[in-house]
Design a binder for these strands. Structure first.
Length: 235
DNA sequence: GCATTAATTGGTC
DNA sequence: GACCAATTAATGC
């Protein structure tokens, strides 16, 4: 995994992969840096200078924000093909998020100047990145609204459904290991509440657990727990 | 096996 | 619904 073999990359959703067949970008793609991280290592540290744009080759990354005071807020979990550190790209000077490897991870990075040249070279890449930003903004605004209106129970269910949508489920458990606290930090509550909600959902047979693993016996049933109350919001 | 961390439960404000 | 304390389970070394 060195050099510019983006053409044969298996991450079909990666923006770079999508334009890798354009001959004009092939030289610039050789400037790609590939970095390996072990589980638990920081990929991006909040407050550090921005040096480029990063794409997940494989692995799972926890993207979070740490306020001066107050508790950590998990923004999202990123997987292969996704972009990390895009919020400050181009204009920002320092990262305002943390990126932590939740599994062994490989990142593909481009320095800011290389990335800017790529965008100037490929209008398709620029267009795709714009669509990505617009989608991100939309999701982010929707999330703020939802978090302010949902009950804790709904927030926890929403978080678990989000993990299911993103990582899927096999052998009756989600394909991602998250602690109760991580669910809480994503849903904007605390771990005790998360544990209580999960405990109740287990009694209602809407969730199953095996140690830290969480499983959804019937996704459609769980979805209904949210859609009934927030039907008017999701129109 | 021991020490640290996470999960759970109960209680108070 | 947030925060604190105590107990128990799980995990790392």
């Amino acid at each position: 995994m060195n050099g510019a073999e983006c053409k044969s990359c298996s991450n079909l959703d990666c923006l770079i992969k999508k334009v890798s067949l354009e001959s004009s970008v092939s030289e610039l793609l050789k400037e790609k840096h590939t970095t390996h991280y072990k589980k638990g290592q920081h990929i991006i540290v909040q407050g550090a200078p921005i040096h480029g744009l990063h794409f997940v080759y494989n692995g799972i990354i926890k993207v979070s924000k740490e306020p001066e005071f107050g508790k950590e807020q998990i923004i999202r979990f990123a997987k292969e093909g996704e972009i990390i550190g895009h919020r400050g790209f181009g204009i920002g000077e320092i990262y305002n998020i943390n990126g932590l490897a939740m599994s062994d991870t490989v990142m593909c990075s481009f320095n800011t100047d290389v990335m800017l040249n790529l965008l100037k070279t490929s209008s398709k890449l620029t267009f795709e990145l714009m669509l990505f930003y617009a989608d991100e903004l939309n999701k982010s605004e929707t999330r703020v609204t939802m978090l302010s209106q949902m009950t804790v129970r709904e927030k926890v269910i929403d978080t678990i459904l989000y993990l299911y949508r993103k990582f899927g489920q096999s052998d009756g458990n989600l394909n991602i290991l998250v602690s109760r606290k991580e669910i809480a930090d994503f849903a904007g509550t605390n771990d005790e509440q998360v544990i209580r909600v999960i405990s109740n959902l287990k009694k209602e047979n809407l969730l199953s657990t095996q140690g830290k693993n969480i499983g959804i016996p019937n996704v459609e049933l769980l979805k209904k727990e949210i859609s009934y109350n927030h039907f008017f919001l999701t129109q």
